[in-house]
Structures are given as C-alpha cells and as structure tokens.
Design a binder for these strands. Structure first.
Lengths: 172, 172
DNA sequence: GAGATATGTCAACAAGGCTGACTTAAAGTG
DNA sequence: CACTTTAAGTCAGCCTTGTTGACATATCTC
C-alpha cells in the first residue's frame, strides 16, 4: 500500500517544482489504470465486430443526441476520414442514425438507435462497475477529488467545453 | 465547475448500484484527461522519429534498470513481436542497451543509455508539469486520493505488482 | 541428453490513426 | 443573383502499433 505519499510542496531550490523529480507515481498509475479501464468493454465489442474507436463514437453520440459531425470530431480529435470509417459501420449496422439538420440542412445530426443505446449503456455499466468497486474501498470524498483532478488535467482552453459536455451545464 | 458532485451512496431499489445510472462523469473525464495527458510528449517524440510505443518502452526501462524482456511484456501487455519492433529501434538508435543476464544468460537485461535516460526524464518532466499544474489548483490531499483511486482501478491481481513497480516497495 | 524456457525473427494481417485532393449541397454575403 | 464559405462525404495511399502462427537459437533444469 502507498502509505506515505509525500504531500506536494515547494522544493528548497530557487527553480520551480518542474525542475525537480518527476511525478512517476501519478504518471505510471495513470497508465496502468487506463490500460485496465479501457480493456473491460473489449470482449463485448468483439462480439459485435466493433473496436474501441466504435465505442468512443457510440458513447458520445448516445450521451449527446443530435450531435453533429463537427462536434464529434472536436471531442475525439481525429480526422473526419478516420471518423467516417467507423461511423459508417455503426450506421450500416443500425447502431447510429444520421438525420439531416433542421435549422442547417448541411449538418448531420447523430442519434443512437435503440440497439445502439442498449450497447452504449451496457458498456458504460461495465466501466461503472470497475469505478464503483474502486470507490467502495476509499473515502467518500474521493470521487470529488478525482473529478476535479481529471478536469484540471485537461487543456485549459477545452476545460469549459468538457465541463459542459460531462456535467451538462445548461444554464439557459 | 463541478460544484455539486453527489456523494456515492446506495440506491433505493433492491438491486445494487451497478444496475443504476452509469458514472458518466468519471468515465468521460478519464477519457479527456488521458487524451490530453498522453499528447504532451508527442511533439518531442516526433523529433526523434519515435512514437508512443517507444515512449512506453523507454519509460519503463529507464525507471527499472535491468528489466528483462518478460517483465517488460508483462507491464505493457503486448506481444513480443510488437515489443521487439520498437525495442530494436531504441537499441539501434542507442537509447536502450541490452546486456546478457548474469545469473541466467538466456535473459536480456535492459538499460537506458545516457541519451535514453535524458529523453525519458525530459518526457516525464513534461507530463509532470501538467500534473503539478492540476494539483496546484486543488486541495493538498488530492494527490493521495487520486493515487489510491487509480491503484484501485487496476485489476486486483496486478495491483500488488504495480504497487511494487510504482512505489518500489523493496521490503528486503 | 531431453525437455522446458527466454528470446529473436519472418511473414502476413488488422485496426485505427494520418495526409492530400476532390465533390456535393447548403448557407451566408455582397 | 453570383460568389464564397462551410459541413460533410469520399477516394487513395501511407504509417504506427497491435495481432497470429510458425520456427530458430541459446541456455537452463532435471
């Protein structure tokens, strides 16, 4: 057990903390945790002939009905050619539906179909199981600390966007 | 800001928490944070003609001098053919050195060279910068909460192994 | 000496990224 | 209305990094 994680505090020398020893613990734990976290859905995706790229697309479309191509590209940070390859398959296999935009008819508004939604939820619950098991071992305020930390890791210019996407902060 | 993250507590219905709503917030924040976190080293790796696979290998070899191929495969969870492709390049370009084992001469013990170490540290510091900036905004005990959470996300059977690797718990 | 083990290698393939060039339809603009 | 811009789709080809399967070599263990 990591029973003595030293608290973060300024170092003795004049230079800032960045010049000092790397945060190997958080770097490596992040790697191992992410490795196991994303591996959960793999077996199920395989049964459908899908990969992780399909999962990401389906997830964000399911969570944001009416998402446009441009918005999805901005979330995933891939090219439209890469997106189109997996999106086409999801549409052909009837997991996602593409409707022409109403206010702007150039846009395609994406929606998960019923079976698309079912799969998205199934995978999300699988990952939620791992998260809940982890949180169950820990202090009740861990979730809050972790949420804030992860949000702060994100590039500052995207933070507000992600915050809106994740927490659905619709002030209007 | 996520100013009202509800605390984790059991739901009203008989089924356990897993049957209830997915933890979309932690799932998505993990995705976005990891996306930005791993993107930092990319530009530098590019200058050396390396990719993320090279980074992972170099990182763990630098952090664990004398690592064997089998141990590295167990950390990365890839096939030896995949490993060998990138490892060969790292050795050819003189970022990693492979020595024949002493007690078991079948083994290859891997060591970062001086320039290998320099690059590994350079990349680790880049990622540390992002981590420190995130922690700077947050409570002083965030790091501890996050460390424990990430460790708990890891598959239980690997947790002790990762703990040893990351925190170097050499009790002997 | 026989079998197991650690590593290396060849060949082929798949997933999922990328660039560059081009098309179409619709919207915005003078 | 003509022109430009924008949203999306597509074709072709390439790269990285993962996979399987088969086989080779050196070394250790019994």
């Amino acid at each position: 057990m990591p029973d003595a994680i030293p608290a973060f505090r300024p170092q003795q020398l004049g230079k800032d903390i960045l010049a000092e020893s790397p945060a190997y613990d958080l770097i490596e734990l992040f790697f191992f945790a992410y490795r196991d976290f994303v591996s959960d859905p793999d077996r199920i995706l395989d049964e459908y002939g899908f990969g992780r790229a399909h999962h990401r697309v389906l997830h964000f479309v399911d969570r944001n009905p009416g998402l446009t191509i441009a918005e999805l590209l901005d979330i995933l940070r891939i090219t439209k050619q890469s997106l189109n390859r997996v999106l086409k398959e999801l549409i052909e296999k009837d997991f996602i539906e593409s409707r022409t935009g109403t206010s702007d008819r150039r846009q395609r508004l994406l929606y998960a179909t019923e079976q698309g939604h079912d799969l998205a939820v199934k995978l999300a619950k699988l990952q939620t199981r791992r998260i809940m098991r982890a949180l169950a071992d820990l202090d009740s305020d861990t979730k809050e600390h972790v949420s804030r930390y992860l949000l702060s890791l994100i590039n500052p210019d995207d933070r507000a966007h992600v915050d809106r996407l994740v927490f659905g902060a619709k002030k209007s």
